[in-house]
Every structure is written in C-alpha cells, then in structure tokens.
Design a protein around this nucleic acid. Structure first.
Lengths: 106, 106
DNA sequence: TAGATAATTAACTAATACTTTAATTGCTTA
DNA sequence: TAAGCAATTAAAGTATTAGTTAATTATCTA
C-alpha cells in the first residue's frame, strides 16, 4: 500500500519542508539543496524517497533535474486517512464549509 | 512543534491501526494488545508515543487504562498540513463539496 | 574531446527506533 | 496482607535511517 510510503516520507521535517518549497514552484535538485544545511547527496536521497512515495515527480531537462509536487497524491492520502479515522468530524468539516463558501462566491 | 511528533507517530502501520481501532470506541491497553501479534510492552510504547503526540488520551479506571482517540488533534494536524502545502486544491475540495451536500440534505 | 557543472549512487559511520524478556507499579479481592 | 491481573518501565539486542565523503553518470560548452 502506498499509504505506508507516504506516511514514512512525511515523517521527516526536511522532507516536509521540501514539499512546502515545491508547493510554490518547481525547483531543481540543486535549488532545493541550497535551501538546506545538508549535502547534495543527502537531499537527493530525500527526493528519491518522496518520489517513491508518489509525492513528487522529476524530469530531467539538460543538466538539471526539476522536481514538482504531486498535489493530488498528498491530499488524497491525508484526507483519505483522516476520513477513515474520523468520518466527518470537526475542523475538516469547518474547512470544507469555508471552501464551499468560497466556491459559492467565485 | 507538535507537528513533528504527530507525523512521527503516524509513520508506523501498527500505530495507525491503533488509531483506527480507537475511532470506533475507547479500548483498554489490553484490548488493543490482543488485536496485534505483538507483546503488551510493545503496544504500551506505541500508546505512549501516540499520547505524547496528542493523538490519544488515557484514563485509568481501576485496574484498566482506557485509551480514546483525540479526533480534533489528528484532523487539525493533517488538514493544517494539507492546506499549507496546497491551499485549496483537488480532492479535498471535492470532499468538502460532498460534505457540504450532505449537510444540505441533513 | 577535454574540462566543468549537476545529480545520483556507493560505501561507510553514527544515531534512532522497534521488539523482546525481565522487573516494577498499581489496583483488586480473597 | 498476600495473591493475581493489568499495565508500564528497564535493559539489551537488532535493525533501520540519516548523514558524510568519495566515486560515477549525464550533460553542457570551450
């Protein structure tokens, strides 16, 4: 099950920070590495893990490898799990109401 | 930040299964242990970790210690993170629509 | 083609996490 | 108070993870 890999991938602050960086824009492996106090190989491993979990995708363009976030994968897994554990409770419902409202306004 | 502990806690299949069991009803440590092929001390450690992360609460009643799920804590953290990474995207929005619809019907 | 840059893989070390058995604590009841 | 069950804590071993440096692969450019 991919859920295992996703939660494993998320159990690391630097990996979650990488996802946050990628939420704004796609970045090269080097771009990402430069944002951390860690060597490039270490970042490369984190990226492999995130990709294996299906949370990011990579594409080589010339010398560079660009990484981008797979939003759906992340959101599907997290909300899927949240709904499994507590079907329709609390803050998520509130969030949804907010979203629904915004949609109504748009 | 509690987020670290929550994601750490979720990075374990048995711990996620414990949460799933607790989503239906509160259970004693022994009840939970009996559902796994693992010794009681091992389960006890998993429970401690879940409690430290704020995902469950425990209460001793006589000989027994009852555990229950802290739904809000789980949902808050997961949706908080999901929204941080992708503000209003995809399946969560769909989920919310579904919820909003159900609410309309109720 | 040779040299330089980007990125990954390999090999190794250090730190963490998981599980087990054994010992301990808390509560109940005969 | 002693015996017994529930649960946790302690101690110890094993395995996994995260990080480093060194070597390798891929691409670009002079």
């Amino acid at each position: 099950m991919a859920v295992d890999q996703v939660f494993e991938a998320l159990a690391s602050r630097p990996r979650r920070e990488i996802l946050a960086y990628l939420s704004a824009q796609e970045l090269t492996a080097g771009d990402i590495a430069s944002r951390f106090e860690m060597t490039a190989p270490a970042i490369s491993r984190h990226l492999s893990l995130l990709e294996a979990a299906g949370l990011v995708s990579s594409e080589r363009r010339g010398q560079y490898v660009f990484y981008r976030l797979n939003q759906d994968s992340l959101v599907n897994t997290l909300t899927g799990f949240a709904f499994e554990i507590c079907p329709a409770a609390g803050p998520l419902k509130r969030e949804s109401r907010k979203l629904a409202t915004r949609k109504g306004k748009a």
